[in-house]
Structure formats: structure tokens, C-alpha cells
Design a protein around this nucleic acid. Structure first.
Length: 270
DNA sequence: AATCGCGCCTGACGGC
DNA sequence: TGCCGTCAGGCGCGAT
């Protein structure tokens, strides 16, 4: 499940290969993703240069002269840059072909991803307009977290995963940030003290920055690799470690279910 | 208004 | 071996 650090790593990995490259063709093998790929997409993008690749939350935005591709990796999506043509494998749903023979290949087994086209400001697109601030921006602050969490009874873990509150914090990093901030994941958001808001805000930023930095080193060859998002599992303190010993206190980590999602936490530390 | 929970989808895994 | 049930989860959307 690519989260913000993985998506940012993909973005940085794609930039040097695709910037200013002209799209000569687009091959859609399976248009049925989370939303159907627009039938006119080929006509809409062909012949245009990639002017920029940016990111909003977990959405990648390819800016072309006449509009923007909005691309989401969903849970299982990955991208590869092929310098030479290769036969498509299972779940290789989309190729962007560039004039220098380079191919951007999108693979997504579960097809929770999305590929859309918009001619307006992509940030005004219905899927993006309601999104909360970027977690690494100044706007996402202790103060913001405090104000937004007032009168919210929802568990802080679920609150953090709400993209209208803050983008890019998914199941993995929500659990990790709460562990780092030593806050129990079931705490009602409104019960957080100012100090806890401060710890949590800082924990989120630190963990995401670390993961992005890590991604830059572990995934710098992702173009040649199989394109798997490469989650930074080696760094994780709690996610996927239910029943194992807490790295801090050595007590057994527990798991609970919140909004249909597993949350691992340390009953002692949190 | 806030919160809950469904459904999309495939692959991995365990039980028989 | 193979089949079947369960789980994993991002996120929009309808229900409560």
C-alpha cells in the first residue's frame, strides 16, 4: 500500500526520465480501475510533453500543456520506467510511450488505482479539492491539529487517516506516528491535550520525512527493478508486528480493529 | 454534521 | 493437489 513517502519516491524517480519527454502513444490494456479510464484519454494526451510531475497527497499529477493526468496507485499500484520495450506482464494495465522509446508502465493487481484527465486546475478536481493540508507543510501544525480535533469523538487513528484532515497518512504511518507520540490509537480525538497534539504533529512529520529519505536510497534503482513500491518495513516499529515485543519496553504489541483496519500498538507505551 | 461501514479487487495463506 | 474461505487495505460514497 503505497503511502505518501512511496508516492513521493515514485515521483522523484520518474522526474529525471519523463520531464520534457513527448508522449507518442498510450496503451490501455485494462481500463477498469477504481474509476474507468476515460475513453478519450489517448486523444487527450498524445503528442504532449510532460511539463511537470507533482504530488497532492497520494495523487500524482502529470502536467501537460493541455491538461493534467491525475494518477493514483491505489493499494497495489506500481510504476516502472522501461528504457527498451518489454512484453507486458500480468496486471500491466497502462503504458505511456515516449518519443525517446521510454515507456512508463503501470501495474496494479487489485485495480484500486485510478487514472484520470482534467483540463482544469487539478487541485480543483472533485477528488482533490476537499483534501486537507500536506503533512509536511507549515499549514499542518500543532495548532491545526488541536483546532481540527476539537469536538471530534472519533478515534485519533481514524481521524489521522481521514484525508480531509490531513493527506497521505495511511494505515502504516498512522500507527507508527501514534506509537512515536505515545498516544493510544483509540483515544477520542477531542481528548488530545495541546502537548499531545504537538507530539503527534512532530511525530508525523519526522516519520514521513525519514521514510522519504529512506525511499530515496532504497529505491533509487526502481527503474530497473520490478517496480514494487518497496515499503520501508525495516524501519517500522509497530505495523505488522502484533504479538511481537515492543522495541522500547519489550512488552507484547497488541492489535485492534478500527474502521475495518488493523491497528498495532503497545499497551504499555501508548 | 459526524461517523460508520460497504464494496471494489487479487493474491497469500490456512484448513481440509 | 486443489478448492474454498478469510484477510489485507485506499478511499469514495451511501446509510445512519
Amino acid at each position: 500500500m503505497p503511502e505518501l513517502p512511496e508516492v513521493e519516491t515514485v515521483r522523484q524517480g520518474l522526474l529525471p526520465h519523463l520531464l520534457q519527454q513527448k508522449i507518442t502513444d498510450i496503451i490501455i490494456r485494462h481500463p477498469h480501475l477504481r474509476f474507468p479510464i476515460p475513453t478519450q484519454l489517448k486523444a487527450q494526451v498524445r503528442g504532449q510533453k510532460v511539463l511537470n510531475i507533482s504530488r497532492r497527497g497520494k495523487y500524482l499529477i502529470f502536467t501537460l500543456p493541455k491538461g493534467n493526468l491525475i494518477w493514483h496507485l491505489g493499494m497495489s499500484g506500481s510504476m516502472r520506467v522501461l528504457l527498451k520495450p518489454l512484453p507486458a506482464r500480468k496486471h500491466d494495465h497502462v503504458d505511456l510511450i515516449f518519443s525517446n522509446q521510454t515507456c512508463l508502465r503501470f501495474n496494479d493487481p487489485r485495480r484500486f488505482g485510478a487514472l484520470l484527465w482534467t483540463e482544469q486546475d487539478p487541485l480543483l478536481h472533485p477528488l482533490l479539492i476537499k483534501l486537507g493540508p500536506e503533512p509536511l507543510s507549515k499549514e499542518f501544525s500543532t495548532q491545526y491539529l488541536w483546532e481540527k480535533s476539537r469536538n471530534k469523538k472519533v478515534a485519533i487513528k481514524t481521524f489521522l487517516m481521514n484525508s480531509q484532515i490531513v493527506v497521505g497518512v495511511g494505515n502504516i504511518y498512522a500507527a507508527e506516528a501514534l506509537f512515536k507520540a505515545r498516544i493510544h490509537p483509540a483515544t477520542p480525538a477531542q481528548k488530545l491535550s495541546p502537548a499531545q497534539c504537538n507530539h503527534l504533529c512532530r511525530a508525523i512529520k519526522i516519520i514521513l520525512r525519514q521514510a522519504i529519505k529512506r525511499g530515496g536510497t532504497t529505491l533509487k534503482d526502481f527503474v530497473k527493478s520490478d517496480g514494487k513500491p518497496g515499503y520501508f518495513k525495516q524501519e517500522l516499529q509497530v505495523y505488522g508486528r502484533a504479538g511481537l515485543a515492543c522495541y522500547v519496553c519489550n512488552n507484547k504489541l497488541k492489535q485492534l480493529r478500527q474502521a475495518q483496519r488493523a491497528t498495532v500498538y503497545c499497551p504499555q507505551c501508548q
